[in-house]
């Protein structure tokens, strides 16, 4: 019986994508639908710059697709994708530093049509002020929903380091957002 892609697991789809060129497009489209939101959130909130984030997003999925042909034993597709995205983003940031002498992070440039809550805008601005390692851990936890262990795997660090980075990121955010959050508590 013909199986629908949406019924298949990530591992099955990834395996089929590398083995059957006729089904590769369908498998890729299904995996893209499942995981593109997480990758997009990571790229956007890590890169800050919208165009750079879009480039990183595209390159991540291109590399992901090409990696399927390399007989890889996939166990955690979201973490694998985020690891690719992380490498792409880090490479792009290194490239930026070589040629452009500006502040490491820009204010996020989002579509003006999209109305965000005031707190969300503040969080996005405050995130730009948080050191990269802390911010990355925070984004992987809050945006991508990874456990501390998964974050440790993606960032290739220890659990203890992940905890410290998340504590400090949240502490830093709370310090920056203190005036607003203080008002929030009054309500």
């Amino acid at each position: 019986m013909k199986r629908i892609y949406s019924d298949m697991s990530d591992d099955e789809l990834f395996g089929l994508m590398g083995q059957d060129s006729h089904k590769a497009e369908g498998c890729f489209a299904e995996l893209y639908a499942r995981h593109s939101p997480r990758v997009n959130a990571y790229c956007k909130r890590i890169m800050g710059d919208k165009m750079a984030a879009q480039d990183a997003f595209q390159e991540t999925f291109t590399k992901f697709f090409k990696s399927a042909s390399q007989e890889r034993n996939m166990t955690n597709t979201p973490a694998f994708l985020l690891r690719i995205a992380r490498n792409v983003c880090l490479n792009m940031k290194r490239g930026e530093k070589k040629t452009v002498e500006i502040e490491d992070f820009h204010l996020p440039s989002e579509s003006p049509a999209y109305e965000k809550s005031e707190l969300l805008k503040l969080i996005m601005s405050a995130l730009e002020l948080v050191p990269f390692d802390y911010r990355e851990a925070f984004v992987l936890r809050e945006y991508d929903g990874l456990s501390y262990q998964e974050i440790a795997d993606v960032t290739e660090t220890s659990m203890a380091t992940v905890k410290i980075r998340i504590f400090r990121a949240k502490d830093k955010l709370r310090q920056i957002l203190a005036p607003y959050l203080h008002d929030l508590n009054k309500v």
Partner: peptide, 11 residues
């Protein structure tokens, strides 16, 4: 607030 950051989650 982050849960409502639809823009980040939507390519």
């Amino acid at each position: 607030a982050i849960g409502g950051d639809i823009d980040a989650f939507t390519p």
